[in-house]
Computed example of a mutant assay.
Amino acid sequence: MILEAVMLQVREGLEEEYEEAFRQASGIISSMRGYLSHELQRCLEVKGKYLLLVKWDTLEDHTIGFRGSAEYQEWKLLLHRFYDPFPTVEHFSKVEL
């Protein structure tokens, strides 16, 4: 399992519109091969700041499968206009303790 983590900064004043667009976009990502789950967290200290966590079976399910799909183009149209600056996506694997 791979965890995709993205810190998102939404343009000021567009938070409610963004959250509604994200609700729509959730159906897109959740239909993808290798998708396990996702959640969007709103920061309590910084207005417009969000944390997106997505669990994938493999890194390639996200980087090749999702990002290379027609569905990703729809995701981009719904969400990418809200971000400033554009976010950096990072991937993590669990450390067994």
Rank of each mutant, 00 (worst) to 15 (best):
R11Q: 15
Y50D: 01
E16V: 13
E15R: 01
M32A: 13
A70H: 14
E96D: 14
E74V: 10
K47A: 13
S37F: 01
G68E: 10
E16P: 00
K47T: 11
A21H: 05
D84Q: 12
E74T: 10
E4W: 00
T63P: 02
L14M: 14
I29M: 08
T58A: 07
V89S: 13
K47G: 08
L44F: 09
A21G: 06
A21K: 10
E17V: 11
R42Q: 11
E60K: 00
A70C: 11
K55Q: 10
I64M: 10
E90C: 07
R42P: 00
H38V: 08
T88G: 13
L77P: 00
T58F: 04
E17D: 14
R81N: 11
S93G: 14
Y50N: 02
P87D: 07
S30L: 00
L8R: 04
S93C: 13
Q41G: 12
L77A: 15
M32G: 08
G34M: 06
Y83K: 01
D61Y: 04
E96Q: 14
Y35V: 07
L51H: 04
S37A: 13
A25G: 07
S69W: 05
E16C: 09
K49L: 08
Y35F: 15
E39I: 07
S69Y: 07
S37M: 05
T58I: 04
H91K: 05
E12G: 01
R42N: 07
G34P: 08
R33E: 14
L53G: 01
Q73G: 12
E12V: 05
Q24R: 14
F92N: 10
E90H: 12
K94M: 13
F22N: 05
